[in-house]
Design a protein around this nucleic acid. Structure first.
Ligand SMILES: [Mn+2]
Ligand SMILES: [Mn+2]
Ligand SMILES: [Zn+2]
Ligand SMILES: [Zn+2]
Lengths: 143, 143
DNA sequence: CCCAATAATGATAATCATTATCATATAAAC
DNA sequence: GTTTATATGATAATGATTATCATTATTGGG
């Protein structure tokens, strides 16, 4: 499995060495594009390639990759972090969490006013929502 | 300090006994309306009233109060839960998290398309955002 | 190629938040 | 006031994440 070009570029700019274990983690994330994986899940998958891979290395690698925005790190009210391949361009993460089966659905669109009505037409039954905006507050804003 | 009427009603319907420790927790949450507190923070405050209050009781009480929607439980990418007094009517939680000072700002409005532009006029410098919609997916939707 | 110097790894211990356990205390019912 | 159910607090257990550190690659200059 090859690494994608965009990822390679960001790696070269920031990461130091592309070791076997880092490569294994990256390939897992690429193969699981669109999924949101915990460190344990990444470990399990990556051990197919690097059997004695340690969990500490997985955490370190995920952390690094999130820092250079190859991955996006988030948390879904279950008390542990999940990582997904970041679709570089946009910083939007619109997720639908099924409160019955706990699957995570990606929403393609921007912040639409009519988003929920649209989703309801698709058969979603919306119970709650939560928007988090990450920003510099007026006081902290760098001028 | 008195308990508010709306809260009292929901308690009577669902909670069993209004013990000193539960009362202390509730009063803390009322006094800190609009703030998002961790269990530890609630413990610290509530011990002003009930000095030998245990952390287990705080967790149990917060959990119960969230279950009957007197509190809203959420998590802000820092790996621990926070609780706030729930403003019963609406299920909306629009938060701005300052990535510099990590204060949490409440946003009053509904999901506006122009929300971010508005906020930028107020001096916020938006870096990222995340929307989570809790729903039954089409497959799981109760008909 | 050989040798430092540097960085990465993996095993394991430590930490932190949360949950479970259980003996004791408190309250309600009779 | 005795019985019964519930709540509490101390503490142990758990699960996720981070820190530590000895060992193992990797690199760049001889
Ligand atoms: Mn996503
Ligand atoms: Mn809030
Ligand atoms: Zn579902
Ligand atoms: Zn700020």
């Amino acid at each position: 499995m090859m690494l994608e070009q965009g990822i390679k570029e960001r790696l070269e700019k920031a990461e130091y060495k592309l070791t076997q274990q880092r490569k294994a983690v990256l390939e897992v994330m690429q193969n699981k594009r669109g999924e949101h994986l915990t460190a344990e899940e990444v470990l399990y998958e990556a051990r197919q390639k690097v059997p004695h891979l340690g969990i500490a290395t997985v955490y370190r690698t995920l952390e690094r990759l999130a820092a250079i925005e190859v991955l996006y790190k988030t948390i879904f009210d279950e008390g542990k972090y999940r990582y997904e391949l970041s679709d570089q361009a946009e910083h939007q993460h619109l997720h639908i969490l099924c409160i019955a089966c706990s699957r995570i659905f990606e929403v393609e669109e921007g912040l639409l006013d009519s988003l929920e009505k649209h989703l309801e037409k698709d058969g979603f039954e919306i119970v709650n929502h939560q928007l988090k905006i990450y920003a510099y507050c007026p006081e902290c804003s760098r001028k």
